[in-house]
Design a protein around this nucleic acid. Structure first.
Lengths: 240, 240
DNA sequence: CCTAAAATCTCTTATAGTGAGATTATGACG
DNA sequence: CGTCATAATCTCACTATAAGAGATTTTAGG
């Protein structure tokens, strides 16, 4: 039932939920009461329901306890102060990627990445920086699944070409993408690793006019170094 | 099971969960798999589990679709720009209060209120601004339940005294609290109403040295007016 | 106060879950 | 690569809980 609450449709009436889920009235009300009592949904105006306070609370708990966020925040602050950009960390959950922390140093950033925003796997520097470090058997299914996207943004036309491109990213330790997600924006991302396995990516996204040749090299080096330090800190912190 | 993930204990191993919940291994693993598949929990280092991406995603959905946040954000920006403070909106969920939006204009605010942080009901300007506008039959149980807190912060020693103090808040349209939640901090809060019923509170919390007599009056007027406008905008928006 | 709609209750019938014990999968170590 | 200990899953008999039709109660609006 909770999956029905989306960006496109954040509120549902009991009648609508009954129809959509195929339950009778007593059953639907029993589920609704259960979700209400636990705080996952709450009534809103007009007799409808929306996601409730428990969701807000749980995200707070998640955010407060994530060692990755603790380790990354100083770097996000530093990078966003040094460049007119948005600095963000995106976690890789094995099947999806979500932004978990972001700081913007420009008022109306060319790209907006609040926490919780999903990211597309087939395009952009973030996705590529993660794919480049996945083991062969984990990356092959993703390459196959997102082949069309990868082709359309010019990564490569065949699996071999795509894997060669990923190998170059792996060697460089950083991925750079021009306008793949947001027209006019440059994305520069490096993976955050846990024992060599990518769990997240640190990215700077900056408006095209600000980012040229030598500056991209400089930012790339800063992002790669910051990602390396976050990798160390986030995994050390958990171990101790 | 999800209630076990707290600020004090954000990670649990399957063995610990088995003991705490009293389930056998197959049952515990079946629940764990179900929560993993739906994204509510995720594995972390050392074979333990923490709250997962679904939580982060759902909070994003909640935040994006909340008309109260859309209506309040410009006011939070304006108020925090005008004073060296933290401006925040706290939602009242009938049994608990959570901060849902906050903007700080000082680097190390005397009080920190990120989204999702729970608030105490028995003390502070926010709680009082909400209680003052609740119908008699809703506020009486709260007055009884939090009598000790209300006494300890000087609101009143008896129910009658407490109700009289709440009546004054209601007449003023704003509650002011000195150091009740955070020593040295002044809180100034006004309720956000939906058809006369309080659903949230707009608050400014500011360091004591910055907040004296005439300035408190001025800020009070600004907060009251902003809360009134948010009340209008948030309920109009939902209706249309 | 009345009425329509929202919400809950009762109880028969249907469906799903728990856990003991067995088995398989995985990871660490030599 | 093989071994071993632990993590994780499977099977199935027994137990527990849920769904929904129809009735009833509660709530909200006029």
């Amino acid at each position: 039932m909770l999956d029905l609450f989306t960006e496109a449709r954040p509120q549902w009436s009991p009648e609508e939920l009954m129809k959509e889920l195929g339950y009778t009235r007593p059953t639907l009300y029993r589920y609704l009461k259960s979700l209400k009592d636990s705080g996952f949904v709450m009534p809103t105006r007009g007799g409808r329901f929306a996601l409730g306070p428990r969701v807000v609370e749980m995200d707070y708990l998640s955010r407060r306890s994530d060692p990755l966020i603790a380790a990354a925040t100083p770097h996000l602050e530093r990078l966003s102060a040094a460049h007119p950009c948005t600095a963000l960390v995106v976690r890789w959950y094995g099947e999806k990627m979500l932004c978990v922390a972001s700081i913007a140093s420009v008022v109306n950033p060319v790209s907006s990445y609040p926490r919780g925003r999903p990211m597309a796997m087939g395009r952009g520097a973030i996705a590529r920086s993660i794919m480049a470090f996945l083991p062969k058997q984990r990356v092959m299914p993703l390459v196959t699944r997102y082949a069309a996207d990868l082709r359309s943004v010019g990564v490569g036309d065949t699996s071999d070409e795509i894997l060669a491109a990923l190998k170059r990213v792996r060697r460089a330790g950083v991925a750079v993408a021009f306008g793949e997600v947001t027209p006019g924006a440059v994305g520069i991302a490096a993976p955050i690793l846990d024992a060599g396995y990518p769990i997240a990516s640190l990215c700077i996204t900056i408006a095209g006019p600000h980012a040229k040749g030598e500056l991209i090299d400089r930012i790339s080096a800063e992002v790669r170094e910051a990602a390396r330090r976050i990798s160390e800190a986030a995994t050390d912190g958990t171990t101790s």
